[in-house]
């Protein structure tokens, strides 16, 4: 009896083995959109520092079709990041009150409520409604 263990190769195919891995990769890809949008904002501050004409040109840049598509994708990915982040928060930060732990949905729910309030506050401040 000889031992000769067989090590199966690891390939990138794991991503497609189960929907949970695809959901994970989608969540991780949100970084490209959040990062990209943030860099766009840095570009915006450059325009803002250069005066009204540069700022107007930046707003025009925002209104190109490519920018609109990018914004819609960014909004979807950023919202997905928020949902996944708040859904996972109770795992990272469990709260024990007396003997019992607060149910996950209470902790997530509090975060979703705070998210809604912050979003409404920001949109109101920006004069979006």
């Amino acid at each position: 009896m000889s031992r000769r263990p067989y090590a199966r190769p690891i390939t990138s195919e794991w991503i497609f083995r189960h929907p949970r891995y695809i959901r994970y990769m989608v969540r991780e890809f949100s970084c490209l959109f959040i990062g990209g949008w943030t860099l766009l904002m840095v570009w915006g501050f450059k325009a803002l520092s250069e005066g009204p004409a540069a700022w107007a040109a930046f707003l025009e840049l925002l209104q190109t079709p490519a920018s609109i598509v990018f914004h819609l994708l960014t909004l979807a990915f950023a919202a997905y990041h928020s949902v996944t982040w708040f859904n996972l928060t109770p795992k990272a930060l469990p709260v024990q009150l007396g003997e019992e732990f607060l149910p996950d949905r209470v902790i997530s729910g509090a975060h979703f409520a705070a998210w809604a309030a912050v979003s409404a506050g920001l949109l109101y401040f920006a004069g979006a409604f």
Partner: peptide, 8 residues
């Protein structure tokens, strides 16, 4: 998670 969607 809190601010980016609204800012976008």
């Amino acid at each position: 998670a809190f601010v980016t969607p609204a800012l976008v």
